[in-house]
């Protein structure tokens, strides 16, 4: 059986995730984690990544991936305008809104010197 190395072989070669990787992923997923939580997740993610490495046992050469299980194609709608929600319905449940807009904290900007 193929070891899957031609795909990068990542799961087999380095199955356990590091704390830095967990930190990076937590950032990608916008989850604030304490160091204790990082460790908690590191152990659990490591266990499951180790487990899924078993997929490397299988020869997947010439196998097409499945992203949709039913083979439907060209599902299209006509270009017809339908009623929208009222503004109140649309943004009424936003945690913060003003003057018809949803309010969000501004993205922090730094000036050219990098000072916040």
């Amino acid at each position: 059986m193929s070891s899957g190395r031609e795909d990068g072989g990542r799961p087999g070669a380095d199955p356990v995730i590091t704390a830095d990787e967990v930190r990076h992923i937590a950032h990608l997923a916008r989850l604030e984690l304490t160091d204790r939580e990082i460790e908690w997740f590191r152990v659990r993610l490591g266990a499951i990544l180790e487990y899924v490495a078993k997929l490397n046992e299988i020869d997947i050469e010439n196998v097409e991936p499945t992203s949709h299980v039913i083979l439907m194609e060209n599902v299209l709608r006509d270009d017809v305008v339908r009623p929208s929600l009222s503004r109140d319905e649309a943004i009424g449940s936003a945690p913060s809104s003003r003057n018809g807009f949803v309010a969000a904290p501004r993205i922090i900007e730094t000036d050219d010197s990098g000072v916040v």
């Binding site: 899957g4 795909d7 072989g9 990542r10 997929l55 299988i58 196998v63 991936p65 499945t66």
Partner: peptide
């Protein structure tokens, strides 16, 4: 290594 491989095994 992970997602695409999983989708292929899914085909199997």
């Amino acid at each position: 290594a992970y997602y695409l491989r999983a989708q292929k095994v899914r085909s199997l």
